[in-house]
Design a protein around this nucleic acid. Structure first.
Length: 847
RNA sequence: GCGAAGGUGGCGGAAUGGCAGACGCGCUGGUUUCAGGUACCAGUGGGGUAACACUCGUAAGGGUUCAAGUCCCUUCCUUCGCACCA
């Protein structure tokens, strides 16, 4: 019998003429139905986050987007759909849900647009936000828009500045004149994290190191906690990236006396066990001792070397790092454990900004030292041998692993054959007792350069006294800003707003464009002139704490109320791109810990569970970009197939975390699935109350179980697959029972909320399904009493048997031996062994 | 170079150590249609067969096991981080 023969009314395989007669209202038309439900949700404020005592809560957070001029990209809805599904499912499961959205809207593009067109960055930002918001709304995300946050809003900036003042009070914000990453092209300094291979992360412009007065945040003070407290977090490999960036390293600082000088040079090493093998020491070219100790004979060679080094950019110094260069200073140091006289060299493979800017060289046990020693003919002295006794060719390469000590010529007595780890302890103890060194932990992490020479950012709420005769604003006035005497703006005067400017261009002047707003910059109080800080905060500032403002976004009295904090924090699920692994996510953790220390927040960590959605590539498998012409615009997909199809497709593509290419045919496949859901559900509304057979009932319960568990585990692709299977099965029924369709519609709702609402209504429900109870499953119905299990003979699959789930072994074997496909392989042989796992496998071993 | 993740049909991808390839795309055939499209039905890893049978298959090679995509070892490749961090 073919299916078409017993399908009665309503018929989805109906002939054309009948289809045409079918009422328009019976067709699935996302273009009319989606705006209808979006308007409904908005009018009924369905997603406003409210807290009810006793109920569990979910704080599901998307990384705050930068509203760029090009609008939403298909990558955005991927993570947003994931958090939306979890939010919607949890609402149905009785959770109070906070699911907010906002704008990280300070930043360079709007400022550059302003330079080119004269449009105020505020206007550009507002129109970009409007575009983003329209697009996000068209996708049906269940955000509580009443909590929308904009980092450029004065009501928000006020609290960003407030946090800065707290950091300033605690000594965590300070000024420093250190070499920083100055990018002439962008007219600003950049954080270490924003410089990649000597170029700006944004725009790939060259970056040079210049000493400039800067505001810094003392993130290094939190290095240890930022590292250690990653432990309890449910985060992916990002933890490892942060650990590496923080770069905690345990070792010792060791002092080397310099012959003929009072000065000692201090090195940091993780291998104090190799000190007896030190055959020379190396200073970074920038090290202050270089000038002091260089001998007359070497002066010329050293200064020539320093000149060459200076002319190299950071990029060249690291890229050409294969051959190590250096020059002897002519001075000698004394090995602190055996008194050996060893030469002091200068070499640019030693980094001025790590450790002490000086290293002890152990060519036998460090690759870099080995290469350097080979180049300049310096001695190689072995002090560690392999624990397994195997030989090592020290002429060819360094032996860098731990091993055991050789007979050492050392005043720090260590027994021959002691394991390296133990030697380290003993040597450190000896150095400490001799006051020639000490145990030390260093970090790769640097303090955070926090000022930018830009307009479109939060003004730093600090001002300075000005030494000046008369009005410093006067043309040609001479004045001196006393940067050594920073004064905090009074809290009640916050927010400190940006001045209006004619010209947003960065100057060559590192004071930045705000310095040109003289009436804003200078002010007089009690006869004394003062100057405001003209640098602004980096874009990261606003996104460091936005998740805290969502919990109480309109509070004018406090950053947020304690009740709001207790109601919603911490963030339960945080989804965003992995490109923020060491930038935003580290900065935000740092601010959170600083706020924790002053009692503003109550958890040491803000984000409990973190997930990075994988990038969506173009159809050709390449990264989407305008220049490659492979960009998919979500607006177009919404227009052609609807928001629900876009959402479901993006979830169906593959695992959330995976990088995966877009396939337009795939969207069409999902659209067909939604069409089938529609047809099946509409059929159910007309089929009266068809009874549900046992098999259908089981299928429904299995699907509920699968989708429930997959949503929990963020395995959305397999959840969609499970629903597809159920729909196929329902579609084949002569009459579709409402009792099967209703749970299906509820399961689908978080994924495809518009079609689900529409069908829910058509199934006779008067209210939105936003808070309809999530379907539950009966575990007993999820397991079949009878299952098909594979029958193997000698490990090879030979047949399939339908057996009771708990069929006894005797019975199973008997049934197998009654099967011709099995006996074909067992005849004439004896069954030597039976492996039987009920419900899984039957394997007969025959001889 | 170091670190992490991974390599399964034509494609995206499924598989608590238990019938590999769920689901979707694509493709083939069919029904409906004047036709195309849609919708629906059937098929779709390779070899082999009229059809079965059988056989080979999860990057390559070895191992553990009654049984390996899954566990272990070696090698190759891909992607993503980091890259003189002493």
């Amino acid at each position: 019998m073919r299916l078409g023969e017993f399908l009665g009314e309503p018929c989805y395989a109906a002939p054309m003429s009948e289809t045409n007669e079918r009422a328009a209202e019976d067709r699935y038309e996302p273009a009319t139905l989606e705006p209808k439900w979006q308007a409904y949700w908005e009018a009924h404020r369905c997603f406003e986050a409210k807290r009810t005592p006793g109920k569990p809560k979910l704080y599901a957070l998307d990384m705050v987007p930068y509203p760029s001029g090009s609008g939403l990209h298909v990558g955005h809805p991927e993570g947003y759909t994931a958090t939306d599904i979890v939010s919607r499912a949890r609402r149905m499961q009785g959770y109070d849900v906070l699911h907010p959205m906002g704008w990280d809207a300070f930043g360079l593009p709007a400022e550059q647009h302003a330079i080119q067109t004269g449009t105020h960055p505020r206007d550009t930002t507002a129109s970009n936000i409007a575009t983003f918001k329209r697009q996000l709304k068209s996708l049906g995300f269940s955000y509580d828009w009443s909590r929308e946050v904009d980092t450029t809003d004065p009501g928000y900036v006020r609290w960003t500045q407030w946090i800065f003042l707290k950091l300033f009070e605690k000594g965590l914000a300070f000024q420093s004149e250190v070499p920083v990453n100055w990018c002439p092209e962008l007219g600003t300094v950049l954080a270490n994290e924003e410089v990649i291979d000597g170029k700006s992360e944004r725009g790939q412009h060259p970056v040079v190191r210049l000493p400039l007065r800067q505001w810094m945040l003392r993130i290094t003070q939190y290095a240890d906690r930022l590292d250690a407290e990653l432990d309890g977090l449910d985060w992916p490999e990002t933890k490892g990236k942060q650990r590496h960036w923080i770069g905690r390293s345990e070792g010792a600082e060791i002092d080397f006396a310099i012959e003929g000088h009072d000065a000692t040079m201090t090195v940091f090493t993780t291998r104090p066990d190799t000190v007896p093998g030190v055959t020379y020491v190396v200073l970074a070219p920038e090290h202050p001792l270089v000038a002091q100790i260089t001998t007359a004979a070497q002066r010329e060679a050293v200064s020539a070397y320093l000149d060459v080094t200076k002319s190299k950019s950071d990029l060249e110094r690291t890229e050409l790092g294969k051959t190590k260069t250096g020059v002897a200073t002519g001075a000698f140091a004394v090995n602190p454990v055996n008194g050996d006289k060893i030469p002091v060299w200068v070499g640019d493979y030693v980094l001025a900004h790590y450790g002490t800017g000086a290293v002890m060289a152990v060519p036998a046990h460090d690759e870099r030292d080995h290469a350097f020693a080979k180049t300049y003919g310096l001695p190689i002295v072995q002090v560690v041998r392999r624990a397994d006794g195997k030989a090592h060719d020290f002429d060819a390469a360094a032996f860098t692993d731990d091993g055991v000590s050789t007979a050492l010529r050392s005043d720090a007595k260590v027994a021959e054959g002691t394991p390296s780890a133990e030697v380290r302890k003993q040597v450190i103890a000896w150095l400490e007792s001799e006051k020639r060194g000490r145990k030390k932990v260093t970090y790769r992490l640097r303090d955070w350069v926090f000022s930018r020479q830009r307009y479109w950012g939060e003004p730093i709420p600090i001002y300075f006294p000005v030494d000046c005769d008369g009005d410093p604003r006067a043309e040609g006035a001479e004045y001196k800003v006393r940067y050594d005497k920073p004064i905090a703006v009074t809290e009640s005067e916050l927010p400190l707003r940006l001045p209006e400017l004619e010209d947003y261009r960065p100057g060559e002047d590192p004071a930045g464009p705000l310095a040109r707003a003289k009436d804003w910059r200078f002010f007089q109080k009690d006869g004394q002139w003062y100057a405001r800080e003209t640098n602004t905060m980096p874009q990261w500032a606003g996104s460091c704490w936005y998740y805290l403002r969502y919990i109480d976004p309109r509070n004018d009295e406090q950053i947020f109320s304690q009740e709001a904090y207790d109601a919603w924090m911490p963030v339960d699920l945080y989804v965003g791109g992995s490109e923020h692994a060491v930038l935003h996510l580290l900065y935000a953790r740092f601010w959170h810990k600083a706020l924790f220390d002053i009692g503003v927040v109550k958890h040491a960590e803000p984000f409990h569970k973190l997930v990075h959605q994988g990038m969506i590539l173009g159809e050709n498998g390449e990264k989407m970009s305008k220049s490659r012409g492979n960009v998919i615009n979500p607006d177009d997909v919404v227009k052609s197939h609807g928001a629900d199809s876009l959402r479901v497709y993006e979830m169906f593509m593959g695992p959330l975390e995976a990088v995966k290419p877009w396939q337009t045919n795939g969207v069409e496949g999902v659209r067909r699935f939604l069409d089938r859901v529609w047809n099946v559900a509409v059929a159910a509304t007309k089929s009266g109350d068809a009874a549900m057979d046992d098999e259908t009932k089981r299928a429904v319960h299995k699907t509920i179980k699968k989708v429930t568990e997959d949503v929990e585990g963020l395995r959305f692709n397999t959840a969609v697959s499970a629903m597809m299977i159920l729909v196929k099965q329902l579609q084949a029924l002569p009459a579709v029972p409402k009792g099967a369709v209703e749970p299906l519609v509820l399961l689908l709702a978080p994924f495809a909320p518009h079609i689900a609402e529409e069908l829910w209504q058509r199934l006779g429900h008067g209210e939105s399904l936003t808070y309809a109870p999530w379907p539950t499953f009966d575990a007993a119905l999820c397991e079949d009493a009878e299952v098909e299990i594979g029958v193997q003979v000698n490990g090879k699959a030979r047949s399939v048997l339908r057996l009771a789930k708990d069929e006894s072994q005797e019975s199973a074997v008997a049934k197998a031996l009654a099967d011709a496909k099995v006996t074909a392989h067992t005849d004439g042989k004896t069954v030597a062994k039976v492996i039987y796992v009920p419900g899984r496998i039957l394997n007969l071993i025959v001889k």
